[in-house]
Design a protein around this nucleic acid. Structure first.
Length: 554
RNA sequence: GCGCCUGUAGCUCAGUCGGAUAGAGCACCUGCCUUCUAAGCAGGUUGUCGCAGGUUCGAUUCCUGCCAGGCGCGCCA
């Protein structure tokens, strides 16, 4: 069933179409029409500036255009009032009972109320975090753990077929250094230069030796590899456990090594060569990414024949496309934004459309304040705040919510002291409280044996301003989900939730839901209870899209 | 030097395709629980939307230049 906003938009388009058809307006019907909820209640339930946009093409004054459109809208049943205001805005007031039909729509649709099919049939590979398995996940990863997971949920709600993927950088010097560092920890020898430091290295060393006491007596060459592999296994398992506890699930953990083992790197280079963008120079094999706007060409294989990290990246991209993904989304930290040019160019070199097949979301870094000072993070120096530590301090819900509610392209500051001190300053509680509050009302209603059957719903009961406001807010939800999906911005869900919770609290304060004392239940009580119930559905679904729990009690 | 991101209230930040008087939370005041969860509601105070031009009916939003901050520019991974 189309939402009220969609119906209105269609009605407006039809009205403009009629006015053009009968010669009152020149120009063409716009593809989409901006319909907003005015801040000022005197401006009606919905407002549109479409007349202002059409005025020029029509060769008429905006107010005159607005009047023509209004004239074409007069016969629509659900519209109660129409006004031309200010420079040419059209303000629309709807019949309250017609707005209240939304309650039935939501209750019948349940959690699927805001799901759409705008991305139906699109296969999306969503890659995020992709940390080295050489240490615990820290706060930089945490932002993506929350946002990436939420984006996956939002895209799925928009109908996309989403695969969440974690690329394990389990190859190269860093792994060797990691192995050597753990080995040094076990043997009590000096940590190698630029090696990994920190408590966790010692802990890993102990665990490795515990699991395999014979490891220390292996020949030196075998020993370092054995340490590396054992520590890798433990560290990866730790990352997986931490992420699952955080509510972030990956469909695929993709090992960089496996690319090399399967010959995917050679295959990737060949594919690019076929496309005509590979060349040899000074004994090395290059990809001419400058053909597609990159700053400089990139080396695939060094003059000694070994492959670069870049070659893994290209092979991985080609592999994803060959697995059938239409869109590959990369979520990278700001410190990797230099990759954008080469990733886009790589796609173009592979014969793809870099503006469609590849999307790169750059997340600004999270700054941490503790004791009024910025905490500098360095994995190798061992000064890190891990995802796990953050969750211990704030809980999963608060951590996820705080990280998701800001757009990722703005740097954010997390004050650890503030999070430790008073968790109720976090908006997540405000939203969850609204949910728990509704749950309590519904529990009480059940005890009082008041009908919650949708057949007993009388929309004409909901005429209070607060009810109207709440209905209007609920009606926006499908659009919010859709824009969050299209713009890849899950934070919009959180912002909407805060508005919805606020609107509900306002309604709750002014509109008594349950009968007072010995009062008999009426159809007003039932109508309000069903309004509460539909609000609860929307809040729960929105929280679910963020991966945050919707408590029945607080 | 080049590239990306950011600059909005005392603080942390929203602001949809350019729309009406620029918003929220926190903080600070004032009211509201002998009936649904007061983790709440209602009201008050707070602005050079970094600066300067341009585009137009209209700019926080789009364009150009400048200022300030963050990050990145390897045959490293």
């Amino acid at each position: 069933m189309p939402s009220q906003i969609e119906l209105l938009e269609a009605a407006l388009k039809a009205a403009i179409g009629r006015a053009i058809a009968n010669g009152q307006l020149a120009g063409s019907t716009p593809e989409s029409i901006t319909l907003s909820r005015p801040k000022n209640r005197e401006h009606g339930d919905y407002a549109t500036s479409v007349a202002l946009q059409l005025a020029k093409a029509a060769g008429k004054e905006p107010r005159e255009v607005a009047a023509i459109i209004v004239d074409q809208l007069k016969d629509i049943d659900s519209i109660m009032g129409l006004d031309v205001a200010g420079p040419g805005f059209i303000n629309i007031t709807l019949k309250r009972s017609s707005q209240a039909e939304l309650v039935s729509t939501i209750i019948n649709a349940g959690a699927k109320f805001a799901d759409t099919n705008t991305l139906a049939g699109v296969r999306i590979n969503l890659e995020f975090i992709s940390a080295n398995p050489t240490g615990p996940l820290h706060l930089g990863h945490t932002r993506w753990a929350a946002v990436g997971d939420s984006l996956g949920r939002v895209l799925t709600a928009a109908g996309a077929d989403v695969t969440r993927e974690f690329y394990i950088n389990d190859r190269g010097n860093q792994m060797d250094l990691f192995g050597a560092s753990v080995e040094a920890g076990a043997l009590g020898t000096a940590v190698p230069e630029d090696g990994y430091k920190g408590e966790y290295i010692i802990d890993l060393a102990k665990e490795v030796v515990e699991n395999n006491p014979a490891i220390t007596s292996l020949p030196e060459q075998d020993r370092q590899i054995a340490f590396r592999e054992a520590a890798y296994t433990l560290q990866l398992a730790d990352q997986q456990r931490v992420l699952e506890d955080f509510g972030t699930h990956f469909d695929i953990w993709f090992s960089e090594r496996s690319l090399h083992d399967q010959g995917a790197v050679e295959h990737g280079v060949e594919k690019l060569r076929t496309q005509g963008h590979v060349f040899e120079d000074k004994g090395a094999t290059w990809l001419r990414t400058t053909d597609f706007g990159d700053d400089k060409d990139r080396v695939l294989a060094k003059s000694d024949g070994s492959f670069t990290y870049f070659s893994s990246d290209t092979a991985y991209y080609i592999n994803k496309r060959e697995r059938g993904f239409d869109i590959c989304i990369y979520m990278l930290g700001a410190d990797h934004h230099g990759y954008v040019g080469r990733l886009k160019a790589t796609a173009a070199c592979a014969g793809d459309d870099p503006n469609f097949n590849v999307e790169i979301l750059i997340g600004q870094l999270v700054k941490i304040m503790e004791g009024g000072q910025e905490v500098k993070l360095s994995k190798r120096a061992g000064t890190i705040i891990t995802l796990e530590e953050l969750v211990e301090k704030t809980g999963v819900d608060a951590a996820r919510y705080t990280l998701i509610r800001y757009p990722v392209d703005t740097p954010m500051v997390m004050d650890i002291d503030l999070l430790k001190r008073s968790t109720n300053e976090n908006p997540v509680y405000y939203v969850q409280y609204a949910h728990a509050r509704i749950a309590a009302v519904l529990r009480n209603a059940t005890e009082l044996k008041i009908s919650l059957e949708i057949q007993d719903f009388d929309p004409s009961q909901l005429i209070h301003d607060r009810e109207n406001e709440l209905l209007g807010k609920l009606a926006q939800f499908p659009r919010v989900v859709e824009s969050a999906a299209q713009m890849r911005q899950p934070h919009r869900i959180a912002r909407y939730l805060e508005e919805l919770a606020g609107t509900y609290h306002g309604f709750y304060a002014d509109c008594r839901v349950l009968p007072m004392g010995d009062e008999n239940p009426t159809s007003l009580h039932t109508a309000r209870l069903l309004l509460c119930s539909s609000t609860k559905i929307v809040i729960a679904r929105a929280l679910d899209l963020l991966g945050v729990s919707a408590p029945e009690r607080m």
